[in-house]
Design a protein around this nucleic acid. Structure first.
Lengths: 349, 349
DNA sequence: GTGAAAGCGCTAACAC
DNA sequence: GTGTTAGCGCTTTCAC
């Protein structure tokens, strides 16, 4: 392209390269008069700073990437959208990297990715954000990161969701609807949010003075298929649960499928709810009762935080500020998939 | 980082910088002996070429981006996955840019994005790939692109899906099931695929010697909501259609919702089908009969094609090869949402 | 075939 | 406050 360089601007404004550099970097110690002259030249010439030149000289690309695996696409979609919004405002690009959480060479793969793209900031979602070796590698390479997930490793900043409260709220709601046989599908056992969710579930029972039926707790993995499988197990229980609460919507959708395929009516025969409020939850019939997870906000904030930190980072050192962990609360959204428990409990098949 | 530069390698191997450069760029005119020496040094030192240095010197970043808007998330998810696979194999990063198709300043926004990231290749999906002004801007800026979509502008390479055949196949299938009142929901009127789809639909009728009932053709926009709306209209027809065929799955899901919310049974009362086979189609009950759109393959190929072209492009010029348009056929996937037409047709509400 | 020098666009360190 | 010089890591002349 007819690229206008910083040199052209300098000549046009009758100043030195460095002064122009100072102006475009918003540095102090530039006379207003000069600044204006330079800005005018930039306008007139249509100058755009070449990020590559900057990156090379500063040894910081300002590129960031979202590391994700592809389980729970609805969740990812929302988060991605929020992040992109933040990037767009900050005029930054977002790299995407799709990795397999279970890959034994995960850390090396990510490292190679960083070397290839020179990103210097990463947004990590679960389950990646809980992988200690990964975080250690990033620290070693001096790559900044924001973790999306409940803080439990004391590393970097993280933006979390209040899984315990969400779980508590849903359970409380179901108990209020007089459900006494609630099936609960846990999240991925290796993710912190799963334990927190279980705590919330139990807390609601305890406060209601009721005892949890352990037979109605099933293991899930946050995936659609695991929701289906767990539902199949739970539905074979006697008495059959009058409600099933899955730790995320992706699994709840699996439950819904399993229930409907057995010709049970939702919510007449059985209530279903999840957590997250992904787009799909309002695209199935009946719409899912859930907890709204402010993923868009979280994604947006994560992007802004990360970019802000990269832009301000003077020295390269891993000088992470005080723990900036922020926890977001969800909000109960009552839709058509839940109702009061059916009066008579039949022993179904 | 302990970054090893090309200079270090040169010293270690006892050759000049340039020779190393030749080796890592796989250029001809290097003695095998030299090449080996250099390669050994690269190994020993763990050298990785800094893409930024290259980008600056060559004025080509090799970065590519996927331009998308967020309608039809399932479609996007699949495409994205395919593209990422290709990028990963080629050791390239993928930038993501989410834009609003309807924005009046779309072209400027994309241009600013290119200036900010210096991407020199773009993958365009519909509806972006049909925007002539956008393509013109890209040509002017000498940014390569691959269009995902039916070729109709004679610009660049494109990977297309055979929408006409897909539509024909579905319609043919429904007619074979003795449906005679098929509601058809068109795609976005500004996208070429929509017209092709309509042609396929009509062709199937014609070949069967039947006449299309124009009242049963409704306008859609490829979005979930537009599918719901169109279904609402179609279901009020007398006689009510015994099947509804939507031009993509996203809309078909909207139809399914609308139908189920009216307490109609699928497929007993009404059959539903779509096109694309997005993940969601096997996550609803009943699973959707559809045409499998090889989006993963298309995305993968698009990435490989684009990257390949960038890597080989000697001179910057927009020297696009002969038209490499490739059309992929879909494949009928029969699932639970379709069955033979109900015998007696009731006039419903 | 190979190497020396110059330069991509920008910023860092140090003068003035 | 501002300008000068050197250099980020790589590639491109163009000699040899």
């Amino acid at each position: 392209m007819a690229s206008v360089t910083i040199m052209d601007v300098a000549r046009h404004a009758g100043v030195s390269k460095k002064t122009v550099s100072r102006v475009i970097n918003n540095e102090a110690n530039v006379k207003d008069e000069m600044r204006e002259k330079v800005n005018r030249a930039i306008q007139e010439l249509g100058f755009k700073r070449n990020p590559l030149g900057m990156a090379l000289a500063k040894n910081r690309s300002l590129f960031i990437a979202l590391l994700s695996d592809n389980s729970s696409p609805g969740y990812l979609m929302n988060l991605q959208k929020g992040i992109l919004q933040g990037c767009s405002e900050e005029q930054m690009g977002l790299f995407l990297y799709d990795c397999d959480y279970r890959s034994p060479t995960l850390v090396q793969e990510v490292e190679a990715y960083i070397d290839n793209t020179l990103v210097d900031g990463l947004i990590l979602r679960p389950p990646m954000c809980d992988k200690l070796e990964l975080l250690e590698m990033l620290d070693r390479k001096n790559v900044a990161y924001i973790r999306i997930g409940p803080k439990d490793l004391n590393r970097g900043e993280s933006l979390g969701f209040n899984s315990a409260k969400a779980s508590y709220d849903i359970t409380h709601y179901l108990l209020k609807l007089e459900h006494r046989h609630i099936g609960f599908i846990l999240g991925h056992p290796e993710q912190r949010s799963s334990q927190l969710g279980e705590e919330g579930f139990r807390k609601a029972y305890k406060e209601a003075g009721l005892k949890v039926n352990e037979a109605l707790i099933a293991q899930g993995y946050y995936t659609y298929q695991s929701g289906m499988d767990a539902a199949a197990t739970l539905l074979n229980n006697t008495p059959r649960p009058t409600a099933i609460f899955a730790a995320n919507d992706e699994m709840a959708l699996g439950v819904l499928y399993e229930v409907q395929s057995r010709n049970l009516k939702v919510p007449a025969d059985i209530s279903i709810c999840g957590i997250d409020d992904i787009a799909q939850s309002t695209k199935v019939w009946p719409n899912l009762t859930t907890i709204r997870h402010p993923l868009l906000t979280i994604g947006y904030q994560a992007a802004c935080l990360l970019i802000g930190r990269l832009k301000n980072k003077k020295t390269a050192g891993p000088a992470r500020g005080p723990d900036g962990t922020q926890i977001f609360d969800g909000e109960l959204v009552i839709r058509a998939s839940t109702s009061t428990a059916p009066k008579a409990i039949e022993v179904g098949t």
